[in-house]
Lab assay of single mutants.
Amino acid sequence: EETYEVDGEEQLKKVEKMLRDRNLDVEVEIHNGKFVIRAK
């Protein structure tokens, strides 16, 4: 499992696309105004 923490939606979209391109399962949560992306 990998976890990424990003600020802002633009970064979120980039990271999310990169992970989905690797066929990973992606979950996004918001913690303290930051996006936390978990990939399995």
Rank of each mutant, 00 (worst) to 15 (best):
E1L: 12
E1W: 15
E1V: 13
E1P: 11
E1N: 10
E1G: 11
E1R: 06
E1C: 15
E2Y: 12
E2D: 07
E2K: 07
E2L: 12
E2C: 15
E2M: 12
E2W: 14
E2H: 11
E2N: 05
E2T: 11
E2Q: 08
E2S: 05
E2F: 12
T3R: 11
T3C: 15
T3E: 10
T3Y: 14
Y4W: 13
Y4R: 02
Y4K: 03
Y4I: 05
Y4V: 03
Y4H: 03
E5V: 14
E5D: 05
E5T: 12
E5R: 05
E5Q: 06
E5K: 05
E5F: 12
E5L: 12
V6Y: 03
V6P: 02
V6L: 09
V6D: 02
V6A: 10
V6S: 01
V6F: 05
V6T: 04
V6I: 09
V6G: 05
D7T: 10
D7N: 06
D7Q: 10
D7K: 05
D7F: 13
D7M: 12
D7Y: 14
D7L: 10
G8S: 15
G8Y: 09
G8C: 15
G8L: 09
G8H: 07
G8F: 10
G8M: 09
G8I: 08
G8Q: 07
G8W: 13
G8E: 06
E9W: 15
E9L: 14
E9I: 14
E9H: 09
E9A: 07
E9F: 12
E10W: 04
E10K: 04
E10P: 02
E10C: 15
E10L: 06
E10R: 03
E10V: 09
E10A: 08
E10G: 03
E10N: 06
Q11V: 09
Q11W: 13
Q11K: 05
Q11R: 04
Q11M: 13
Q11T: 10
Q11N: 10
Q11H: 04
Q11F: 13
Q11Y: 07
L12S: 06
L12N: 02
L12Q: 02
L12M: 13
L12V: 05
L12A: 14
L12E: 01
K13P: 01
K13A: 11
K13M: 08
K13V: 08
K13N: 06
K13Q: 09
K14I: 14
K14T: 11
K14R: 10
K14Q: 11
K14S: 10
K14Y: 10
K14W: 13
K14F: 11
K14V: 12
V15G: 01
V15K: 03
V15R: 01
V15T: 04
V15P: 01
V15Y: 11
V15I: 14
V15E: 01
V15N: 02
V15D: 02
V15S: 02
E16A: 07
E16D: 03
E16I: 15
E16W: 06
E16H: 04
E16G: 02
E16V: 15
E16P: 01
E16Q: 07
E16Y: 11
K17G: 04
K17M: 06
K17W: 00
K17T: 03
K17L: 02
M18C: 15
M18N: 03
M18P: 02
M18S: 06
M18F: 07
M18V: 04
M18R: 05
M18Y: 05
L19Y: 03
L19D: 03
L19K: 00
L19E: 04
L19C: 13
L19G: 01
L19T: 01
L19P: 03
L19Q: 01
L19N: 00
L19M: 03
R20N: 05
R20D: 03
R20C: 14
R20L: 09
R20G: 03
R20T: 04
R20M: 08
R20W: 04
R20K: 11
D21E: 12
D21H: 04
D21K: 03
D21T: 03
D21V: 04
D21G: 06
D21Q: 05
D21I: 03
D21R: 02
D21N: 05
D21F: 04
D21A: 09
D21M: 08
R22C: 15
R22H: 09
R22V: 03
R22E: 04
R22K: 08
R22A: 07
R22L: 10
R22S: 04
R22W: 12
N23G: 15
N23S: 07
N23R: 07
N23V: 04
N23H: 12
N23T: 03
N23W: 12
N23Q: 07
L24N: 02
L24T: 02
L24W: 13
L24H: 07
L24Q: 04
L24C: 15
L24D: 01
D25I: 13
D25H: 14
D25G: 08
D25S: 12
D25T: 12
D25R: 11
D25P: 02
D25K: 11
D25E: 13
D25Y: 12
D25W: 13
V26A: 04
V26L: 08
V26Q: 01
V26H: 04
V26N: 00
V26D: 01
V26R: 01
V26Y: 15
V26E: 02
V26I: 13
V26M: 10
V26K: 01
E27A: 09
E27T: 14
E27W: 14
E27F: 13
E27K: 10
E27Y: 13
E27H: 12
E27D: 07
E27G: 02
V28W: 09
V28L: 03
V28D: 01
V28A: 01
V28N: 01
V28Q: 01
E29R: 10
E29H: 10
E29K: 08
E29M: 11
E29G: 05
E29I: 13
E29F: 12
E29Q: 08
E29S: 12
I30S: 09
I30D: 10
I30H: 08
I30C: 15
I30W: 14
I30G: 06
I30Y: 14
I30M: 11
I30Q: 09
I30F: 13
I30E: 11
I30V: 10
H31I: 15
H31G: 05
H31N: 08
H31M: 12
H31S: 08
H31Q: 09
H31K: 13
H31P: 00
H31R: 13
H31D: 06
N32T: 00
N32W: 00
N32R: 00
N32V: 00
N32I: 00
N32S: 00
N32E: 11
N32A: 00
N32K: 05
N32P: 00
N32H: 02
N32D: 12
G33W: 00
G33I: 00
G33D: 08
G33R: 00
G33T: 00
G33E: 01
G33V: 00
G33A: 00
G33S: 00
G33H: 07
G33C: 14
K34L: 01
K34V: 07
K34A: 08
K34M: 05
K34Q: 09
K34Y: 09
K34F: 04
K34D: 14
K34W: 06
K34N: 08
F35G: 14
F35M: 15
F35P: 15
F35V: 15
F35I: 15
F35A: 14
F35D: 14
F35S: 14
F35N: 14
F35R: 14
F35H: 14
V36T: 04
V36D: 05
V36W: 02
V36H: 09
V36P: 14
V36S: 00
V36E: 07
V36R: 08
V36Y: 04
V36K: 06
V36C: 14
I37W: 00
I37R: 00
I37Q: 06
I37P: 13
I37M: 00
I37S: 06
I37K: 05
I37N: 04
I37E: 13
I37V: 14
I37Y: 00
R38S: 12
R38L: 08
R38F: 06
R38Q: 08
R38P: 11
R38G: 07
R38E: 10
R38V: 12
A39W: 08
A39Y: 06
A39K: 01
A39E: 04
A39N: 01
A39Q: 01
A39S: 08
A39L: 13
A39G: 09
A39V: 15
A39F: 09
K40P: 03
K40A: 05
K40Q: 08
K40W: 09
K40F: 08
K40H: 10
K40G: 05
K40I: 13
K40T: 11
K40D: 02
K40E: 03
